[in-house]
Amino acid sequence: MATFTRGFHGKRRGGDDRLPPGQYLTDDFPVLSAGPTPQILPSEWEFTVETETGQVHRRSWQELMALPSETPTVDIHCVTTWSKLDTTWQGVSLDVLLEDVETAAEYALVHSYGGYTTNLPLEDLLDGKAWIAYRYDGEELHPQHGGPARLLVPHLYFWKSAKWVRGLQLLNEDSPGFWETAGYNNYGDPWREQRYADD
């Protein structure tokens, strides 16, 4: 029987090299929630970006749909230790949404319908690293997964990918969000296993 060493297989689909430390693979898409699921109609939805000088940029659902979209296929990692590989999304890159926004801010506080917030450095939203996603696995994003639209920042633990996103506040000073003020790590890099505040 022929035997093969891992070194000759290249990057394995579903392999350990795509699984951050302490994570396990799942085919499910678990739903974790810190409150009731907001039911937001696209006709009511809007996305605002408020800069550090108080300038507000608004986009309606219709305007979001008119922007060029991308279809990223990404691995996602939840802090509760599940990871899901090759998830497929459709959404608008934050590079597009922030194109006409003048800012010198270094931080962003993400706001969601329902009151959830999460913070991250602005640079983690740029250069093809983040999207406002409105379709998952070829279908409209279900409300329990954040529909009509959620933030998608797959290189950080998934609590940073805020469901039911409604806007960004651009800030000169970092401002910890919902889980970041309750024991979770301020940055949340799964590859450095930054789960809790003191990790």
Binding site: A34, P36, W159, A182, G183, Y184
Partner: peptide, 16 residues
């Protein structure tokens, strides 16, 4: 009470 993961979140039954 929502959770338990990533944490327990207890909300007011009156105003949420």
């Amino acid at each position: 009470v929502y959770g338990p993961a990533p944490g327990l979140v207890a909300r007011c039954p009156g105003c949420n």
